[in-house]
Design a protein around this nucleic acid. Structure first.
Length: 585
DNA sequence: ATCTGTGGCGCG
DNA sequence: AAAGCGCGCCACAGAT
C-alpha cells in the first residue's frame, strides 16, 4: 500500500506495532547520508507492506516502532540505518542484517555473485529479482511511477523471505552467537561512520610537504650515486639537452633493478628485507626515499580530499566482515593503517571542549591463545601480570631479559612469539631474527618444548581446519577453507597456517565488536555525551565532552574488559587507555 | 584513456 | 618456495 498522507502514516503505526517482526527498506536519491534525500520508507511483513512517501509524510508516527527493540530485517542495514538517522533523525534499533548473515554463513566459501540482495536471493530461490528500478531513484524528483512503488514494495519483502531460508542454516551451523553479535554491532559501526573524525589539515599538510622535500633530496642523492649509469643510459641520451636532469624512476622496480645491476648488485626483488641485507649505501637511500614517498602518496594531500564538505570531518566506510577472520576492514579512507607514529595520529583531533580516549586491548591475541590452549605457563604469566615476551626471551636465549635488560632480545622474542604462534617455519624464524637455519630449528624446538600446550593447540587447530574444512572461534564464528587439494603441500600449508591464526584473530574481532555494541548502548542509555570515532582491530577511539572524560575513560575500559572477559575467562583481559586532545598511542 | 595484476608497504 | 596471519592504497606495467 502506498502512503502519501500524514494521517495514513499515523494510522499504520499500530498495525506495525502488532507485527512480531518487521522488514524495513529505504529509497534515497543517493548514497551519501549527508547530501541525499530520503524518498521512500518501506515497512511491513510478509502479508502487508507499506510504501511511504517520506517527502510528503512525517515519519514521526513510526519513530516509536523503529526505535523499539522489535526486530527489523534489512539487507545491508548499515545503509538504511545511516539514512534514517541523518535524514529522519530516527535511531533504528535491533536490526537483523541478512547481508551479514549471508556472509557469516558462507564465510570463505565461494559466493557466486557476491552478497547483494539479488545474489543472495538467487542462491536460495533460484529466481532473478529485478533491480532495474533501483537506479531510477537517483536524483529522483516528482511523483513516483507505479513501477517504482511496486519495486519498493517487493524490495522490502525479499530480506524477510531470505531470513527464513537462512535461519535453519544458522542453527545447523551453530552460528547463532555470531549472527547475533554481527547484528548488534551494526549501529555502532554505522555511528562511527556518521560521527566521523576531525583532522588538522595544516598539520597533516606540513608533514606531507616535509616528506616531499625529503624525498626529493634523497632522490637527488641517489641520482648522484647512479650518475655513471645514468650518463651512459640510452634513455638519458634521449634528452636533447645533455645538461638536462637525468634521473630514474625509483618507484619502478624494473628501472631500480637495472640501475642496481650497474653497481654489480643483482637482486630478485627490491623489498625491504632484500635491500637491508645488501649493506651498500644506496640501499639505505632507496629505503629512505620509499619511506618519504609512502607518506607523500598514501598519507599526503589526497588524503584530505576525504574531508566531507558538509561536516568538515572524515567519514570512512567499514566493511563489517571485511576480513574472513571476522575483522572489520576500512576504506575511503582506510583509518586502520594510519602510521602509528604520534606525528600522524595526533592530526586526528577532538572537537572544541572535547577529549579523545584511545583504548586498546594489550597482548590480546596472546591472551586468546593462552585461553584456547590453556597452556599453564602462558596462563600463569598472564595471571601474575608478567611480561610474556621477556619470559619467552629468557627461555629462548638463556639470558636474563626484561624491558630494561637485553631489550633487543625481548624485541626478537616478541616477533617470534607472534610468528611462531601463527605457523612460522624455521626458515621464517631465521629470517626474522637473523640467524642460521640450524639455530632457528633449535630455538623453535625449545619454544614448543617450553609451551607444549601451545604446540598441541596449534597443531590441533591446523588439523581441524584441514579435516573439517573450517575453523571456529570461541564465539562459534566459522571460516571455511578450500580443502579440495590437500595433497598439494603448498595449499595444505596455507590452510594449516590460517587454521592456526583464524580462531585467534577471529576471537579478537568478536570481542571488539561486542565492546562496540556495549559502548554505544552504554553511552545512549546513560545519556553520555560521547561518541565512537574509530576502531582498529584491538583498539577503540572515543570522543567525549571534556568535563566527563574521566568517567567516560573508566567506562570505556570497564566495558572493553567485560567484553573481552566474555570470551577469555581464564585470565584477566587488560585494557590500556589514554586521554588527549587527539588520537594517541 | 581505462582496466587488471603485481610489488611494496602502512597498520594490527 | 607465495614458507607467519589479516587488510587497503599507491605506483607501475602490460593489456585493451
Amino acid at each position: 500500500m502506498f502512503i502519501e498522507r500524514d494521517e495514513d502514516a499515523a494510522r499504520i503505526a499500530p498495525e506495525l506495532e502488532s507485527m512480531p517482526i518487521l522488514c524495513v527498506d529505504t529509497e534515497t536519491t543517493g548514497l551519501d547520508p549527508f547530501t541525499s534525500e530520503l524518498l521512500l520508507l518501506q515497512v511491513g511483513d510478509l502479508k502487508q507492506q507499506y510504501v511511504i512517501d517520506a517527502r510528503k509524510c512525517s515519519l514521526e508516527p513510526l519513530r516509536p516502532v523503529l526505535e523499539s527493540q522489535k526486530p527489523k530485517v534489512l539487507h545491508n542495514a548499515k545503509f538504511d540505518y545511516k539514512m534514517l538517522k541523518n535524514l529522519a533523525g530516527i535511531r533504528m534499533e535491533n536490526v537483523v542484517d541478512t547481508m551479514l548473515i549471508e556472509q557469516a554463513i558462507l564465510n570463505g566459501k565461494q559466493a557466486d555473485g557476491g552478497y547483494s540482495l539479488a545474489a543472495a536471493y538467487k542462491r536460495y530461490f533460484d529466481t532473478e529479482i529485478s533491480k532495474e528500478e533501483q537506479s531510477s531513484f537517483v536524483n529522483h524528483t516528482g511523483d513516483f511511477s507505479k513501477e517504482q512503488i511496486e519495486y519498493a514494495r517487493l524490495d522490502v519483502l525479499y530480506p524477510l523471505e531470505l531470513l527464513y531460508k537462512q535461519m535453519p542454516r544458522i542453527r545447523r551451523e551453530r552460528l547463532e552467537h555470531t549472527v547475533k553479535l554481527e547484528c548488534l554491532a551494526v549501529p555502532a559501526i554505522a555511528d562511527i561512520e556518521l560521527n566521523g573524525v576531525a583532522i588538522d589539515r595544516e598539520r597533516w599538510l606540513r608533514i606531507s610537504q616535509q616528506a616531499q622535500e625529503e624525498a626529493e633530496r634523497v632522490r637527488g642523492d641517489l641520482d648522484k650515486e647512479f650518475e655513471e649509469y645514468l650518463s651512459q643510459n640510452q634513455q638519458g641520451q634521449l634528452f636533447a639537452d645533455p645538461k638536462a636532469v637525468q634521473t630514474l624512476n625509483y618507484d619502478s622496480d624494473q628501472q631500480l633493478k637495472e640501475a642496481l645491476e650497474s653497481l654489480g648488485i643483482k637482486v630478485e626483488n627490491t623489498d625491504k628485507w632484500t635491500l637491508m641485507r645488501l649493506e651498500h649505501p644506496v640501499s639505505d637511500m632507496i629505503l629512505e626515499y620509499r619511506q618519504h614517498q609512502k607518506v607523500v602518496s598514501t598519507y599526503g594531500e589526497t588524503f584530505l580530499e576525504y574531508i566531507h564538505p558538509k561536516t568538515g570531518r572524515i567519514h570512512c566506510d567499514f566493511r563489517q566482515m571485511g576480513a574472513e577472520s571476522g575483522r572489520l576492514s576500512c576504506t575511503k579512507p582506510n583509518l586502520q593503517n594510519i602510521p602509528s607514529d604520534s606525528e600522524f595520529r595526533s592530526c586526528f583531533i577532538a572537537g572544541e571542549a572535547r577529549k579523545m580516549i584511545t583504548a586498546d586491548y594489550s597482548g590480546c591475541e596472546l591472551r586468546i591463545l593462552a585461553e584456547m590452549s590453556q597452556d599453564p605457563e602462558f596462563l600463569r604469566a598472564f595471571k601474575n601480570n608478567e611480561d610474556l615476551h621477556s619470559l619467552v626471551a629468557t627461555m629462548m636465549f638463556d639470558k636474563p631479559v626484561s624491558k630494561y635488560e637485553n631489550p633487543e632480545l625481548r624485541q626478537k622474542a616478541k616477533a617470534v612469539n607472534f610468528g611462531l604462534a601463527y605457523g612460522m617455519s624455521a626458515r621464517g624464524l631465521a629470517n626474522q631474527i637473523g640467524c642460521g637455519d640450524e639455530e632457528a630449528e633449535e630455538l623453535l624446538n625449545k619454544y614448543f618444548n617450553a609451551f607444549p600446550a601451545i604446540k598441541s593447540f596449534l597443531e590441533r587447530s591446523a588439523a581441524v581446519a584441514v579435516s573439517r574444512g573450517y575453523s571456529t572461534t570461541i564465539g562459534g564464528r566459522r571460516r571455511h577453507f578450500d580443502v579440495s587439494n590437500m595433497e598439494d603441500r603448498k595449499k595444505r600449508g596455507q590452510v594449516e597456517r590460517k587454521g592456526k591464526n583464524s580462531p585467534i584473530q577471529g576471537a579478537n574481532a568478536d570481542m571488539i565488536k561486542l565492546a562496540l555494541y556495549e559502548l554505544r548502548r552504554g553511552f545512549h542509555e546513560r545519556q553520555i555525551d560521547a561518541q565512537l570515532v574509530n576502531t582498529v582491530h584491538d583498539e577503540i577511539v572515543v570522543e567525549c565532552a571534556e568535563e566527563i572524560v574521566e568517567e567516560t575513560q573508566e567506562m570505556v575500559e570497564r566495558i572493553m574488559r567485560a567484553a573481552g572477559g566474555y570470551y577469555v575467562k581464564s585470565i584477566p583481559v587488560d585494557v590500556e587507555s589514554a586521554v588527549a586532545d587527539c588520537w594517541s598511542k
